[in-house]
């Protein structure tokens, strides 16, 4: 088994999840509470990675962070190296690619919290930010947990985007899915099977535990 690739995938997924928690939670809270009419536009943008082929997303991210774009040049002037084909570049792409898998469950979690809970807090003189941490977040935790697990698991399994942005540099951008692809290309089916099976079991275990825990609190899968 390619332990280096597994370790890289785990690191990438953890970092992606953390970035999505930091940026996704406020975005989801806003989406769940805003009365702005144009809200659907933001929802559509957030959901884009679900329907776009990973290659399309990867291509545009590559363009956006490459040396020809202002963002890419700014990053290079700041850190002295380019974003594509690095771990950081991969992280940027992963965050975008897993965005809906974090933000949608987060939003459902916040939307399930009675708005009057927040209003009660405001009327008691507690600021909006403190209300978010003391009331909204603790009450939305089933959705927050789902979003964290799904974004982590989804990043573990990404392939197309990694190929476009990261290439195949062992220890830097060679993730589990790329490793499996390489093994298959080399007709090394035993090794590919080993890693694939591990990934399959991991994905199933994570989802089963999450949904099992949540059965008691909220229903991700609707039932009658």
């Amino acid at each position: 088994m390619d332990w280096q690739a597994i370790w890289l995938s785990l690191r990438l997924s953890a970092c992606t999840m953390l970035v999505l928690v930091v940026f996704g939670l406020p975005l989801a809270y806003w989406l769940a509470n805003t009365r702005w009419r144009g809200r659907f536009l933001i929802e559509a943008v957030v959901a884009l990675p679900i329907v776009l082929p990973p290659t399309v997303l990867g291509f545009y991210v590559l363009m956006a962070i490459g040396p020809l774009s202002p963002v890419g040049r700014f990053y290079e002037s700041l850190f002295g190296h380019r974003l594509p084909f690095t771990f950081e570049g991969l992280l940027v792409a992963s965050v975008l690619y897993s965005l809906p898998f974090a933000v949608q469950p987060f939003t459902s979690g916040f939307a399930a919290v009675d708005r009057r809970m927040m209003e009660a807090s405001w009327c008691l003189g507690v600021s909006k930010v403190a209300t978010f941490f003391q009331v909204a977040l603790p009450l939305a935790w089933p959705g927050v947990l789902t979003g964290m697990v799904l974004s982590f698991a989804h990043t573990i399994g990404e392939f197309g985007v990694v190929l476009m942005i990261g290439g195949n540099i062992p220890g830097t951008t060679r993730t589990v899915s790329i490793s499996i692809y390489d093994e298959v290309q080399a007709l090394n089916y035993a090794a590919a099977n080993q890693t694939s099976l591990a990934l399959l079991l991991f994905a199933f275990a994570v989802l089963a535990i999450t949904y099992g825990l949540q059965r008691k609190f909220i229903h991700v899968w609707p039932t009658r």
């Binding site: 009057r116 209003e119 009660a120 405001w122 009327c123 003189g125 507690v126 600021s127």
Partner: peptide, 10 residues
Amino acid sequence: PQQRGVGFVF
């Protein structure tokens, strides 16, 4: 609401 000093019973 924080600046008004109002008690609200929902």
